[in-house]
Simulated assay, not measured.
Amino acid sequence: MTGTHETPGPGRNVATLRKARDMSQVKLAREAGVSVSLLSKIEVGDRALSQGVAAALARAMHVTLGEVLGKAHVEQDQEANLKYLRSTIRRFDLPGEAPANPEFLSHDLDALADLRGDAKLAEVLEKTPALLEKTTNYAHATGSPSAWAMVADVYSTVYWLAARHRWMDLAELAVLKQQLAADRADPLVSAIASRDEAGTFLNSGDFAGGLAIVDRAIVRAESSLEGEARAFGLGQLHLRGLTLAGRMGDSAEAERHTVAAWRVAEQFPEDVKSHGLHFGPENTTNHLIATSVDLEDHRKALATMDGLGRRRLNLPATRVGPLHMNVARAKLALGDRDGALESLKDAWDIAPQMAKVHPTSRELMRVLISLHKRSNPTLTKLAKQAGVSL
């Protein structure tokens, strides 16, 4: 394939950022704590850049993790929606007129959660600003905890949307407002807000800081939540802790959160949904696969996926799409290029809008294009969907 060395992706960004700072590969590798061989392979497209390594490289170059991973651009037809969203967030404490039909808000919130679950990023951006405005105005008018919980839930979706595009200023602003709303709601909503706050640390590469947020929130949840809400809230926090530990390369910390997550997951015969999030045995297994890949235990990841794949998954596209990306990472690391390509195709089939902007998807495609020395119809089709020239 021609022109593969120009294929955009996080690994390609590393070379661009390094050269702009007049750093040699030897110097960057030394300061980031990685081998020169690994760095060289990442830059030329022979190895996929993990987010854990990306965070180390970002720190060594004194840039943000977002600069390494690459910020997703705003489509021209979405600019007005994004501007509307930012304006609504800014007016959090300046409520307007309460909605004439507040009884429709719960239905609208469920519909937005479904769009999020289906990984329909464009549709989420289109629907979120107006719903955020309505729920905020309604919460100010009534002051009820349930109304503020709705506001917090919309802000959780704002965080999710911003994190997917790596609009980190918006993500951090969203979780700040989310926590303010959650403080007026209930302890479960506060636990979810802390989960999302830890997510901003994850997205910025500050994994230790994110774990500190998680541990603090776990202490609060253990003392303030009861019953199924307690299990659900703790489960969300432990899964976030699991991901953070995996990105940090701390297998002992990952095991601690794994054991705790399974302990509460056993209270659910199947995954349940609350406040737009899922928790239960399937989502716990999903996180274990991702963390196994982050810890470079690729055979364990594939064995776990094999067990999970024997039954029909009930997880939403926003979870299943990245699951297949992580399986593709494991297969690629083990030298199975064709298997990695098939798993990447599965991710695109299930969640195309997410796959188009996700840094893992873009990095996998960059490396597969670089490694494939012959024409491949599947890869050609995926590259076309991603807007990548071969």
Rank of each mutant, 00 (worst) to 15 (best):
A32K: 02
D196A: 13
A141I: 02
T2E: 15
L341I: 04
G235M: 03
R230V: 09
V36W: 12
A130F: 08
P269E: 03
A254H: 08
V34Q: 00
R362T: 00
N283D: 15
V293W: 00
E266T: 07
H372Y: 12
Q25G: 13
K19N: 13
L364N: 05
D108T: 07
G9L: 01
S50C: 03
F279L: 01
M365V: 08
L308S: 14
A191H: 04
T291H: 01
G52I: 07
H62I: 12
K120S: 12
V367W: 01
L57Q: 01
A20I: 09
R220I: 13
G45S: 09
D250C: 05
L341T: 03
V327L: 04
R164V: 13
E126P: 07
G246Y: 06
H107K: 15
D22L: 13
K177I: 12
W167S: 01
V158T: 01
H257D: 02
Y84N: 13
A347H: 06
D110R: 15
M248V: 04
S274Q: 15
S274M: 15
K27A: 14
Q385K: 13
M150H: 03
E126Q: 13
P377F: 02
Q76T: 13
K300G: 06
G241V: 09
L112S: 01
R362V: 02
E133R: 15
A217M: 01
I192A: 05
A130N: 05
V264I: 01
L390N: 09
A333M: 04
G9T: 04
H257T: 03
K19D: 12
G117W: 08
V68T: 11
H298A: 08
I89M: 14
T284G: 05
R329K: 08
I369G: 11
L125H: 03
V175F: 08
E228L: 08
A119R: 10
G11N: 00
A301M: 06
R366C: 02
R310W: 06
W160K: 02
A98K: 04
N13R: 13
A122N: 14
A29F: 06
R164D: 12
G209N: 07
L211K: 14
L131A: 00
L85R: 02
Q267P: 00
A290Q: 14
E123V: 12
R116V: 15
K41I: 08
V34R: 00
A245P: 02
Q76E: 14
G321I: 02
L188I: 09
L131T: 00
T360N: 11
N286M: 05
